[in-house]
Computed example of a mutant assay.
Amino acid sequence: MSELDLYAKYLDLGVRLGRSGEDLATWVEDKVRQDMERSDRQVERERKREEMELQKQREEMELQKQREEMELQQHREEMALQREEREMQKEESQRQLELRRMELEAEIKKLELGSRNNADGAGPKQNYVYDPEA
Score class of each variant (00 low, 15 high):
residue 19 R to Q: 12
residue 14 G to V: 02
residue 24 L to Q: 00
residue 117 N to P: 01
residue 105 E to T: 11
residue 47 R to M: 13
residue 121 G to Y: 01
residue 91 E to G: 05
residue 22 E to S: 07
residue 102 M to L: 15
residue 85 E to H: 09
residue 73 Q to N: 12
residue 110 K to S: 15
residue 115 S to E: 14
residue 82 Q to C: 08
residue 41 R to G: 04
residue 52 M to N: 05
residue 9 K to G: 00
residue 93 S to H: 15
residue 25 A to M: 14
residue 45 R to N: 12
residue 42 Q to T: 10
residue 110 K to R: 14
residue 87 E to D: 10
residue 18 G to I: 01
residue 1 M to F: 05
residue 69 E to N: 06
residue 104 L to V: 11
residue 18 G to P: 00
residue 43 V to A: 05
residue 79 M to R: 07
residue 98 E to H: 04
residue 80 A to V: 11
residue 121 G to A: 06
residue 32 V to W: 00
residue 98 E to M: 03
residue 10 Y to I: 03
residue 90 K to T: 14
residue 43 V to Y: 01
residue 118 N to M: 03
residue 41 R to D: 06
residue 128 Y to I: 10
residue 59 E to D: 15
residue 34 Q to K: 13
residue 67 R to D: 00
residue 50 E to V: 10
residue 79 M to W: 02
residue 102 M to C: 15
residue 127 N to I: 03
residue 53 E to S: 13
residue 75 H to F: 08
residue 11 L to H: 03
residue 22 E to K: 05
residue 44 E to N: 15
residue 5 D to W: 03
residue 23 D to S: 01
residue 34 Q to Y: 08
residue 58 R to Y: 09
residue 103 E to T: 08
residue 104 L to R: 13
residue 122 A to Y: 09
residue 41 R to M: 12
residue 51 E to R: 11
residue 77 E to L: 14
residue 33 R to S: 00
residue 43 V to K: 05
residue 26 T to K: 05
residue 63 L to G: 02
residue 64 Q to A: 04
residue 103 E to W: 12
residue 38 R to T: 15
residue 68 E to C: 07
residue 85 E to F: 14
residue 36 M to L: 10
residue 5 D to L: 08
residue 45 R to A: 04
residue 130 Y to E: 07
residue 100 R to N: 06
residue 41 R to L: 15
residue 63 L to K: 05
residue 83 R to I: 07
residue 9 K to R: 00
residue 115 S to W: 15
residue 63 L to W: 06
residue 64 Q to F: 02
residue 129 V to T: 02
residue 101 R to E: 05
residue 49 R to M: 13
residue 93 S to L: 09
residue 73 Q to P: 04
residue 60 E to P: 00
residue 105 E to R: 14
residue 113 L to R: 09
residue 125 K to W: 00
residue 70 M to V: 02
residue 80 A to Y: 11
residue 66 Q to A: 04
residue 61 M to W: 01
residue 13 L to T: 11
residue 96 Q to F: 09
residue 25 A to L: 06
residue 88 M to V: 13
residue 127 N to V: 03
residue 128 Y to W: 13
residue 47 R to P: 00
residue 72 L to P: 00
residue 53 E to C: 12
residue 25 A to V: 02
residue 64 Q to L: 15
residue 128 Y to F: 06
residue 89 Q to F: 02
residue 74 Q to W: 04
residue 13 L to C: 01
residue 134 A to S: 04
residue 34 Q to L: 07
residue 65 K to F: 02
residue 110 K to D: 13
residue 10 Y to A: 02
residue 31 K to R: 09
residue 52 M to C: 09
residue 87 E to H: 13
residue 90 K to G: 01
residue 102 M to P: 01
residue 100 R to D: 06
residue 118 N to V: 07
residue 92 E to V: 07
residue 90 K to N: 12
residue 80 A to R: 13
residue 132 P to C: 04
residue 62 E to V: 08
residue 38 R to E: 07
residue 50 E to C: 11
residue 120 D to G: 02
residue 98 E to A: 10
residue 129 V to I: 03
residue 111 L to H: 09
residue 107 E to Q: 10
residue 6 L to G: 04
residue 54 L to G: 11
residue 106 A to V: 03
residue 72 L to W: 04
residue 76 R to N: 08
residue 60 E to K: 04
residue 83 R to H: 12
residue 66 Q to N: 12
residue 95 R to G: 11
residue 57 Q to G: 02
residue 90 K to D: 11
residue 133 E to N: 00
residue 71 E to Q: 10
residue 93 S to F: 10
residue 111 L to W: 09
residue 124 P to D: 06
residue 64 Q to K: 14
residue 92 E to L: 13
residue 97 L to C: 11
residue 29 E to Q: 05
residue 59 E to A: 04
